[in-house]
């Protein structure tokens, strides 16, 4: 969509005005600074998704729209988790978990670790489940990004 102030609120406003649900939303400028790319996850019957697609296409700021679920595609989400770690045993356990999930420890203090993890959403959910034995201080997730496999592309 056009990288203009107000463009995001048109999209968000459309969802609330028409009673559609936003499960996640991520947006950032693209390599072309006049455009930004927004990935939005929503849920609905085929009819509802068709209507959402049409309504989004009607927004003047929306340049192009692609329903990734109609194509083979890859989804990724990034997460940062701050865990309380009290002793050497706990520290070792978190390091082990992070390795299993192919994450990274990106911050260390006397009492905490911050683990960075990338993957599809179920993988991130699984990690949260796996570290339930620890005190989770904070979780921050990016929301889902997606890209189609092969030749299909969302570009002008």
């Amino acid at each position: 969509m056009e990288n203009e102030s107000g463009a995001l609120s048109r999209v968000a406003g459309l969802f609330s005005a028409r009673g559609y649900n936003i499960e996640s939303l991520t947006v950032a400028p693209t390599e072309d600074p006049t455009l930004s790319r927004l990935t939005l996850v929503t849920r609905g019957s085929d009819e509802v998704i068709e209507q959402i697609t049409k309504q989004l296409n009607k927004l003047v700021d929306v340049v192009k729209l692609l329903d990734l679920t109609e194509h083979r595609h890859i989804e990724r989400e990034m997460m940062m988790v701050k865990l309380k770690v009290q002793d050497g045993e706990q520290r070792a356990e978190v390091v082990r978990m992070t390795e299993i999930f192919r994450g990274h420890i990106i911050d260390v203090s006397n009492t905490t670790y911050v683990v960075e993890l990338t993957g599809d959403s179920p993988k991130l959910d699984a990690f949260i489940d796996a570290v339930r034995g620890f005190e989770v201080v904070e979780v921050v997730r990016s929301g889902v990004m997606g890209i189609a496999r092969g030749d299909v592309a969302l570009r002008l």
């Binding site: 009819e47 068709e50 209507q51 049409k54 309504q55 296409n57 009607k58």
Partner: peptide, 8 residues
């Protein structure tokens, strides 16, 4: 003329 009116 409005695709969103169709099958709404």
């Amino acid at each position: 003329v409005d695709p969103a009116s169709i099958s709404k």
